[in-house]
């Protein structure tokens, strides 16, 4: 995706300029970089799905026609540079506080589309207070939550979402529930709050699931734009580098193990009508 480019330029390059311009007229553009995604190459590790999720967000912003009125809030964590990757106005928040920053923006400018992008350390550990209260207040914001069960940026420490038995740099013998407690299931926890209008979890592991994710994201955005409440989509995301797995194994690990702890599906849907997807 990082190499996605204007299709006509791409064709010219591929064909070395040997095809006459008039022959290209009837070619259809079938894939391009969303307008809301910048051309800055992602810094993410191979096999990581932050890039995928970024692209999906940019697609959504384009689809809704929101590029001109979006303010995105980035986290601290692997996605700390996310402001470089979107063509919308962006704010870099302090660790965990994106929902509070988003509250400030949205209350100040109620007609803008405001989203936060947060990892599990950011949202489920240090920022748990902010997300709970933003959800309880029913802030009209959309939260794109990436759960990869580990602190990636800082070198693979245990996260509140790490699985029992998971080996991390701060749980070298595997996460022990007696010493470190149990994984926090964010969707299950937040879905009790009345202010939540839409909440869903999906494993970002296959084209099919990516399409499901799009469907969920659309609803999470409509939760905001239709003034219903807070919308959140949690994606189960691989971190092959810190998990010590190949990208392929990491995806299998999600589908076989992670989903047992974090079952995918829709948890809250208070939208007036079912989405046409």
């Amino acid at each position: 995706m990082t190499t996605a480019m204007n299709s006509q330029d791409g064709m010219k390059k591929q064909n070395g300029g040997s095809v006459a311009a008039e022959d290209l007229v009837d070619l259809k553009c079938v894939f391009e970089r969303p307008q809301s995604l910048s051309d800055k190459p992602f810094h993410y590790c191979p096999g990581c799905s932050h890039g995928t999720y970024h692209r999906l967000i940019a697609e959504m912003i384009d689809e809704f026609g929101f590029m001109d009125r979006t303010v995105g809030i980035c986290p601290v964590g692997c996605a700390v540079f996310a402001y470089e990757y979107f063509e919308t106005d962006m704010i870099e928040a302090s660790h965990g506080r994106a929902p509070a920053v988003a509250t400030g923006v949205k209350r100040a400018l109620p007609d803008r589309f405001v989203f936060t992008y947060q990892g599990d350390g950011d949202l489920a550990s240090i920022g748990m207070g902010e997300i709970i209260h933003a959800a309880a207040r029913g802030e009209r914001i959309t939260v794109f939550f990436v759960n990869n069960g580990i602190f990636g940026m800082t070198g693979g420490q245990m996260a509140p979402t790490s699985l029992i038995g998971q080996k991390t740099t701060t749980s070298v013998d595997g996460r022990d529930a007696r010493a470190t407690g149990h994984p926090i299931r964010v969707c299950e926890l937040l879905s009790n709050l009345e202010g939540v209008a839409y909440m869903a979890r999906v494993a970002l592991t296959s084209p099919k699931n990516i399409n499901t994710c799009r469907k969920y994201m659309r609803k999470a955005i409509r939760a905001q734009t239709e003034d219903v409440g807070l919308g959140l989509v949690e994606v189960l995301s691989p971190c092959p580098v810190q998990w010590g797995m190949s990208p392929g194994d990491a995806l299998h690990h999600i589908e076989e193990d992670v989903v047992k702890e974090f079952p995918p599906g829709e948890f809250v849907d208070k939208l007036a009508d079912p989405v046409k997807a």
Partner: peptide, 26 residues
């Protein structure tokens, strides 16, 4: 105008950060 009773001072200052970033007097 906007008044929000935040859940903590930490949230308060970050809401200020957001509203100030949005160009408002916060």
């Amino acid at each position: 105008r906007v008044f929000v009773q935040a859940e903590s001072e930490v949230a308060s200052i970050n809401m200020v950060y957001g509203a100030a970033a949005a160009g408002k007097r916060a």
